[in-house]
Design a protein around this nucleic acid. Sequence first.
DNA 1: AAGTGGTCTAGACCACGAA
DNA 2: TCGTGGTCTAGACCACTTT
Lengths: 243, 243
Amino acid sequence: MVPDVALDRSSPVPLYFQVATRLQQQIESGEMPVGGRLENEVELADRLGVSRPTMRRAIAYLVERGMLVRKRGVGTQIVHPKVRRPVELTSLYDDLVKTGQQPRTVIRSLEIKPAPDAIAEALGVPFGTEVTWVERLRYAGDEPLALMHNAVPLDVLPLRRADLEERGLYELLRAAGHVPRMANQVVGARAATAAEARVLGDSRGAPMLTMARTAWDEQGRAVEYGSHLYRASRYSFELTLTS
Amino acid sequence: MVPDVALDRSSPVPLYFQVATRLQQQIESGEMPVGGRLENEVELADRLGVSRPTMRRAIAYLVERGMLVRKRGVGTQIVHPKVRRPVELTSLYDDLVKTGQQPRTVIRSLEIKPAPDAIAEALGVPFGTEVTWVERLRYAGDEPLALMHNAVPLDVLPLRRADLEERGLYELLRAAGHVPRMANQVVGARAATAAEARVLGDSRGAPMLTMARTAWDEQGRAVEYGSHLYRASRYSFELTLTS
DNA sequence: AAGTGGTCTAGACCACGAA
DNA sequence: TCGTGGTCTAGACCACTTT
């Protein structure tokens, strides 16, 4: 039994969030069984000493995250944990770090130039807007993994070679206050050209995963365009989608 | 100028939703410029004759959908339309219909059998659970496009050959009340085997997109496992992600 | 009929950002 | 200092599901 942590009304953390966190802990600790029902919201609110709207907001938050399901006239049920995984927006660098692999990056070129029309279009910026264009080769351990091309508008973030060698592009964007919040990506596959195969240490015609992505920040401002090539033998995308 | 449609308080459609729809129309019609600011919520509520919480709920709904951004002390801004596209959970069949192509499906095999352990694991059902296992070849027009394998637990939906030939799997699932709401998928690539190439009318070693997916309904119940092979020359995935 | 969640209100106070 | 959105309350009424 998780002790009933008292709510702190002087905390800057909103009450509804404290309540939601508390509920979430009880669910995750297994104290409340999967498939089980919660008390009705009026009693819950009473017992925790908050108003019903506040209680509802906490529950709504967990419903939003896929942890609970509500049905009018029935009640609130706890959903199977497998379905709870959140949608994430990460970069290859993040992924590698998370899985404990050692990412290393070689900057093959970096230049400032007007964006090619197709890329300006993808970014939704005027033709001729200046971007930093960078080609990087990413290793996992000693093995080449991906060949990556990116364009970042100059006024979003001036990219420096040294920074990019040590940190992922997304980490740099976040640090500059441009948190990627939404991205549109097209994932496909094709055979490697001779030149690509040589760079990636693969054989010509080897299957490659391709990914083209535009990312926007919270303001709806385009922060990055990327066109990447992954060795299919070494990498795949894992995604969680919701309708 | 869009006429101010009066709100209908006797309608079963919630007020906050009527308000949100109204706002959305004004934004999409271009009446309110991209990047522009909304009136503050108190005035808006006043003008529409609803309470502030109701107004807030309408705005929150549009913020959730990425259409508006709010900043305390600043105001509410309209986000660039490019960023508004919703996350969607569709099937290949849906995609083809939407783009106006004529999907055709050939059922190559359909049998009822206990799920292989790996698939039972992916579905989160007990080992040995009976599933319908189906292999389908999907055409766009006359061109083979994808070779698809699916497992659907028997107690979710008993699949019939005739139904599958005329309708997509997802359409059938929806009709049976199992609306796919969340999915986890792994997208990769590899070279086609000789057998796969023969079936798909491609040459051996041709690059193929692979996709393995488990989908759950609103209750968190696994409704489908799929393992698909797409001709990379003819298909790619388009995704919108949010953090 | 009883119990559940869904909607809506009117008003209060607070926290943050800009002028 | 002022204007903005963010939080919270107490209570009302409604709609749906189960018994």
